[in-house]
Design a protein around this nucleic acid. Structure first.
Lengths: 186, 186
DNA sequence: TTTTAATGTAATATT
DNA sequence: AATATTACATTAAT
């Protein structure tokens, strides 16, 4: 990591343990001297191209590709070769592929957001009601049936569990709150 | 019919009651979890009917009204009282009022839009210049200094990053476009 | 009409 | 896997 990036890395992360900038100076409430310093490089992960990373065999963090160069390869994860042809359609329908192609040139790090269809959600919810922790076999079955990547299924269930937990927490909080403040009524 | 097809067919239909997945598979080794018992109620401190607050002269926090009960009062925000009569028409024509009952039911859970002051924006922009990803401590600090909820700070930075990204994308697109089509000029 | 606060959620990262 | 946070698409208020 370049030295100039280390200097501001404390500002980028959520653990500013070694941050040398005081809150006051960041807020600009005392002096605005630091704000104009040329040494301060801003953390713009989607605008810089120095930190592309590879995660396993998937290289989501691609180097910046200019607009003129067409994408020729799909991310390894989506390129499932079978019987000599690459089945893009499996987890990446045409409209989504166009979307991805357009976006990868300016933001390399993120998988294009999957837009589940209503019927897919319906099936997932139905399964979730009976089993919030489907095993690999069920997930594969779902992936096959819904024409989705098994990873999408896994992520969906993770997020769904988190949502359920959050809703439960909030409803519990409401109950406590209401039980503590009934006299405010009218 | 092969067993595999039967397993798949249950996922296709919209009737979970007829699902033929094995109990062991669905329940995941019979791990009983009562995660589904919680009612889905989101925490909306600004819309509870017992603690409706007034922001300035506007009462954003409407009393909760069920779907069946006809609305008799307009939201205070739209009901601008002047010289003894309530000018509904000003910002809510008749045809729109007809749909209000349905709309308020749909959107009554939405937080009233926060109007940041100029000075608040100034501080936020100053911080954003040096750090687009403030951690929880900086956000709390900002919330304290600016008399805002920490949630508002977080949302503001999220939207600000999106805005910067969009601007960057558009400018990049313009550069590419201009470099590719200089001859079209005049 | 434009800008942007707010929402929901898919994806990412850490532990 | 739980958790927190982010990006992103969308809605809606100004």
């Amino acid at each position: 990591m370049p030295a100039e990036l280390q200097k501001v890395s404390c500002l980028a992360g959520n653990k500013p343990t070694t941050c040398s900038f005081s809150i006051e100076s960041i807020l600009g409430l005392d002096k605005k001297r630091d704000l104009n310093s040329a040494a301060v490089r801003h953390y713009r992960p989607w605008m810089d191209n120095y930190c592309s990373r590879e995660v396993g065999t998937h290289c989501w963090h691609l180097p910046i590709i200019s607009y003129e160069i067409p994408l020729q390869v799909h991310p390894a994860k989506h390129a499932i070769e079978k019987e000599g042809d690459i089945r893009y359609e499996k987890c990446c329908p045409a409209n989504e592929r166009l979307h991805y192609k357009r976006e990868v040139s300016w933001y390399r790090g993120r998988r294009p957001r999957t837009a589940f269809t209503r019927s897919q959600i319906e099936v997932l919810e139905n399964v979730f009601r009976v089993n919030s922790y489907p095993g690999i076999d069920v997930r594969e079955e779902l992936a096959n049936k819904l024409s989705l990547d098994e990873d999408r299924i896994q992520i969906w269930f993770q997020n769904r569990r988190a949502k359920l937990k959050r809703c439960h927490r909030e409803s519990q909080f409401l109950i406590v709150k209401e039980s503590l403040t009934p006299q405010i009524q009218e």
